[in-house]
């Protein structure tokens, strides 16, 4: 059975002025267990909307999302979500941020703290357990957010441009770390980005969306072994190809 199925999902919004905007049209996607998928597209193509629908934070106008064969009817701990703005709770210490999902599920204090520390170690921040989020750098905060999402052991991890606010160096380091974590945990990952470089470095398959209404332009398999070299020629030609797809997807101007 497929881990995740997006079945002919369409989404139409109504704006404040009563205008109807079609954000997504007939998006169908099947994801295997343990796959790393990047959803790529120009800004305004509805990639974040698609991720929010998969997460259960928005409802599709048509179609459905299935996780392990079960339809998604709202937000669930089966689907972990990581936001671009980290979304940590500033009044909670790092360890209590990570333990939050377990706390919600009613796991006892000792157990959840222990589990939180394990995930803290996984993202390499064990020394910062008792710090507050505002004492950490952007990259460290996002690692806390990753640990928090993983601590509830979701079936699928959804990431919405998680490294978009980071500088280029931190971003590269975070990409490498994310792949290490992914290899250790064997999670299924859906990663939204507008960066072709990021998608080519990370993904098993790249889902390229068109501009509004967002449809799947093409699904590009990246068959290169990891760790990948950012400067190799195979990568360069793949990047050129994907960039071409995005440009074609743009309306004529």
């Amino acid at each position: 059975m497929k881990k995740l199925v997006v079945d002919r999902v369409s989404k139409t919004f109504e704006t404040d002025t009563g205008e109807e905007v079609e954000a997504l049209r007939g998006v169908t996607l099947e994801v295997e267990e343990g796959e790393f998928i990047c959803i790529l597209g120009p800004s305004g193509c509805g990639k974040t909307t698609l991720l929010r629908i998969i997460a259960g934070l928005d409802t599709p106008s048509e179609g459905a999302v299935l996780v392990d064969g079960e339809p998604v009817r709202g937000p669930t701990p089966r689907l972990g979500m990581i936001f671009q703005d980290y979304s940590l709770y500033p009044w909670r210490r790092v360890v209590d941020n990570i333990a939050f999902g377990l706390e919600l599920a009613g796991v006892g204090k000792a157990t959840r703290t222990e589990r939180a520390r394990e995930y803290l170690e996984l993202v390499g921040l064990d020394e910062f357990a008792d710090a507050y989020p505002y004492e950490l750098s952007g990259g460290m905060r996002q690692r806390v957010a990753v640990a928090r999402a993983l601590a509830t052991e979701p079936a699928v991890v959804l990431m919405d441009e998680p490294f978009g606010a980071l500088d280029a160096q931190t971003r590269n380091a975070m990409q490498r770390e994310l792949l290490e974590i992914w290899e250790k945990t064997m999670k299924t990952v859906l990663f939204v980005t507008h960066s072709v470089d990021e998608a080519v470095f990370l993904a098993d398959r790249i889902v390229v969306l068109t501009t509004r209404p967002g449809r799947i332009r093409e699904i590009v398999a990246v068959n290169e072994a990891r760790p990948r070299d950012r400067t190799c020629t195979a990568g360069a030609s793949l990047r050129r190809y994907v960039l071409g797809l995005i440009d074609e997807g743009r309306p004529d101007t």
């Binding site: 997460a55 934070l57 937000p75 669930t76 972990g80 709770y89 999902g101 928090r148």
Partner: peptide, 23 residues
């Protein structure tokens, strides 16, 4: 209160009551 604070809690399994009291 940031919308993503609430949404993060919801994806972590918070009930409406938990969203109110813990976020």
């Amino acid at each position: 209160v940031k919308r993503t604070w609430i949404e993060a809690a919801m994806t972590l399994g918070a009930t409406e009551r938990q969203v109110l009291t813990k976020v």
